[in-house]
Computed example of a mutant assay.
Amino acid sequence: MAENTSGSGGNAGLAFIVGGLLVVVAIVAWVVFGRGGGMGGETKDVNVDVNLPEVSAPATPGN
């Protein structure tokens, strides 16, 4: 009996998965570090003023 010693069948699938993971990591690194989406970047002034009307409880009967 002849044995298949090339072993390229399983390695091709593994290489495809590892390559895909490297592409995902590269995209995430570009978004976080390249475009300033991570820490740092522009500062934003968030000034919120909330004015709510005064709410009183309804009158209870018998008082």
Results as ranks from 00 to 15, higher is better:
Ser6Tyr: 02
Gly9Val: 00
Ser8His: 04
Ile27Trp: 11
Pro53Asn: 03
Asn63Ala: 13
Ala57Met: 08
Gly20Trp: 04
Phe33Pro: 00
Gly7Asn: 03
Thr60Asn: 12
Val50Leu: 15
Asp45Leu: 05
Val31Arg: 07
Glu54Trp: 09
Pro61Phe: 09
Val55Gly: 03
Val48Met: 14
Asn51Trp: 07
Val32Trp: 07
Gly20Val: 03
Val32Asn: 07
Gly38Lys: 01
Ala57Asn: 05
Val24His: 08
Val50Ile: 15
Val50Cys: 10
Pro58Cys: 05
Ala2Val: 02
Trp30Ala: 14
Phe16Pro: 01
Gly9Asn: 01
Leu21Ala: 14
Val48Pro: 02
Gly36Lys: 06
Asn47Ser: 14
Val48Tyr: 08
Gly41Ile: 03
Lys44Arg: 15
Met1Tyr: 03
Phe16Lys: 10
Lys44Met: 14
Gly40Ser: 09
Ala57Cys: 03
Val28Arg: 13
Met1Asp: 05
Val28Ser: 11
Gly20Leu: 11
Pro53Gly: 00
Gly7Pro: 02
Glu3Trp: 02
Glu42Arg: 06
Glu3Asn: 03
Leu52Asp: 09
Val55Met: 11
Gly9Tyr: 01
Phe33Lys: 11
Pro61Leu: 12
Leu22Arg: 11
Gly38Glu: 01
Val18Phe: 13
Ala2Met: 03
Thr43Leu: 06
Val50Met: 15
Gly41Asn: 03
Leu52Arg: 09
Leu14Ala: 10
Ser56Asp: 12
Gly36Met: 05
Ile17Cys: 07
Val23Asn: 14
Val24Lys: 10
Pro53Cys: 02
Val31Leu: 13
Gly62Ser: 10
Met1Phe: 03
Asn47Met: 11
Ala57Tyr: 06
Val23Glu: 14
Asn11Lys: 14
Asn47Ala: 14
Ser8Ala: 04
Ser56Arg: 15
Ala15Cys: 09
Gly20His: 04
Thr5Val: 08
Gly62Pro: 00
Val25Arg: 07
Leu22Tyr: 13
Leu14Asp: 06
Val50Phe: 14
Ala57Asp: 05
Asn4Asp: 11
Glu54Arg: 12
Pro61His: 10
Gly41Met: 00
Arg35Tyr: 09
Thr60Lys: 15
Leu14Val: 07
Met1Leu: 05
Val31Cys: 06
Gly34Thr: 02
Gly20Thr: 06
Ala57Pro: 00
Ala2Glu: 01
Gly62Cys: 09
Val48Lys: 12
Val25Cys: 11
Pro53Leu: 04
Ala29His: 11
Asn63Leu: 12
Gly7Leu: 01
Gly10Gln: 04
Thr43Met: 06
Pro58Glu: 04
Asp49Leu: 08
Val50His: 10
Gly13Asp: 00
Gly41Lys: 02
Lys44His: 14
Ile27Thr: 11
Gly37Ile: 07
Val31Phe: 07
Ala15Asp: 08
Asp49Lys: 11
Lys44Gly: 10
Asp49Phe: 06
Val46Pro: 00
Thr60Trp: 08
Arg35Pro: 02
Lys44Cys: 08
Val28Leu: 15
Glu54His: 13
